[in-house]
Design a protein around this nucleic acid. Sequence first.
RNA 1: GGGGGUGUAGCUCAGUGGUAGAGCAUCUGCCUUUUAAGCAGGUGGUCGAAGGUUCAAUCCCUUCCACCCUCACCA
Length: 503
Amino acid sequence: MEAPATENLAEFLQHRLDKLARWREAGIDPYPYRYDATHRSDQLKADFDRLAESKDEVSASGRIMALRGFGKSTFVHIQDEAGQIQVYFQTNKLGADVYERVGWLDMGDIIGVKGTMFKTRTGEMTITATSFELLTKSLEPLPEKWHGLADKELRYRRRYIDLTVNPDVREVFRKRAQALRELRSYLDGQGFLEVETPVLQPLYGGAVARPFVTHHNALGVQLYLRIADELYLKRLIVGGFHKVYEVCKDFRNEGMDRDHNPEFTMIEYYWAYADYTQVMELTRALFRHLAEAICGGLKVPYGESEIDFDEDWPQRPYLEALGEALASDPVGLSDNELAELCETHGQAAPDGASRARLYDQLFKLTVEPELVSPTFIVDYPKELSPLAKAHRTNPDLVERFELFVGGHEIANGFSELNDPADQRARFAGQVKMRAGGDFEAHVMDEDYIRALEFGLPPAAGVGVGFDRLVMLLTNQRSIRDVLLFPQMRPEAPTDSEHDAERS
RNA sequence: GGGGGUGUAGCUCAGUGGUAGAGCAUCUGCCUUUUAAGCAGGUGGUCGAAGGUUCAAUCCCUUCCACCCUCACCA
């Protein structure tokens, strides 16, 4: 165990250990095995009138979050998953011997209480204890009770404390679980089959990103943690499933910021015999369902503004949206002119940037920040999308959409490219970019081409950034606030650990 | 990687080139319907780390570390 940093902490720990010893000396195990409470705190409150009237014996368990002693009586708030309930200990109710043990309790201890319900003079619903048990002794101090734990680093590193003292954090993760549940039931209801595909992949693909690399000893091969599930899910469409989806943990070996964590959750769904207009409609219906289920309505507060999932969701062609923002047709501009525009909009393009890349940068600078209410940007240039099918009316474009909400990209989908020759050519283009130093470009995936040669029916698919969706639904501005344990730099080893490593 | 910020008691935060502060928590005492309990008295600090300047550094300088914000990278 880590040594206490200061005298104060050492003293604190010693006091707790002394009390722990007192329980043991009294023949009581301070870490017993189970406790069966009759009620949760919210149930006691909801059913209070009946319970107070009948004087039925109730029991509850939880962590002591407040403790006020008055000599021969003591008030305690215990907190369970649903909230807090007050407990009242009195000498003449418990007897002097049992009441003495109340003095062995501390903030943070976990106890079980039996008693009956009543209201104090100030009207608070309270259990008056007829007996109680220590369920777990706590040896660490809780943070300050009024301000809670505010330090973000400590909140992320010691999420268990954050969850204990900050109830709204618990609420965010309840909503996250609810969103996932609703998403599954919605897709299941639409006839989608939930599947699981490999996290460890011999080739990575389906997105433009650098992978985490690992090694399998038995096979003696290099493997990659998946960056996307796309190519496996489409193989399943080849295999005859009509509608599949996966809740995918993906891994990308890239920078971290407010919108990016190296591991994150993507929802991908693929629908055979459908095109991108149909998956757009499905995505819209899914998001509206989630907003209603999680937020209780289609108008969702987000920061200073509000996101309205109820309005029509406009579909704006990529080049048209870009053209409007630039006040000239981007197709008619030379690469040099595009690069100059990047500069005038505040950010120079990297040297030798491809045309698609210049478009992309201009789009991010001018169009993307404006897309607060849900908007589909559709029909992207081909170079940006090596897995999307060419547009049925314009061979320079692909049938692809990205959904923007709150200024962030939330979903991305397209009519799937199913012509094996075209796919091979696109992969070849990617391989060339890769040879040119672009480590994020796709690699050639022969097995995937073979699957297409076997025959992928017309299909469309979507990837949804689930963490970002949860950010919208819970009004959080950082991805770290919707991940229970966001990626952090490992803590520096303590001196003792350091010594242990050296010896 | 660039720019900005933060780091002082367990927690939330003040503060100063000359022996370190508050509130809460903690400890002791009093108190049987309290509730940010109260009253009285205590304990608790390598002022993120290492160097430097200085008679003297928590404060000024340099470097480093962690975290936050921002830009870049990143579908």
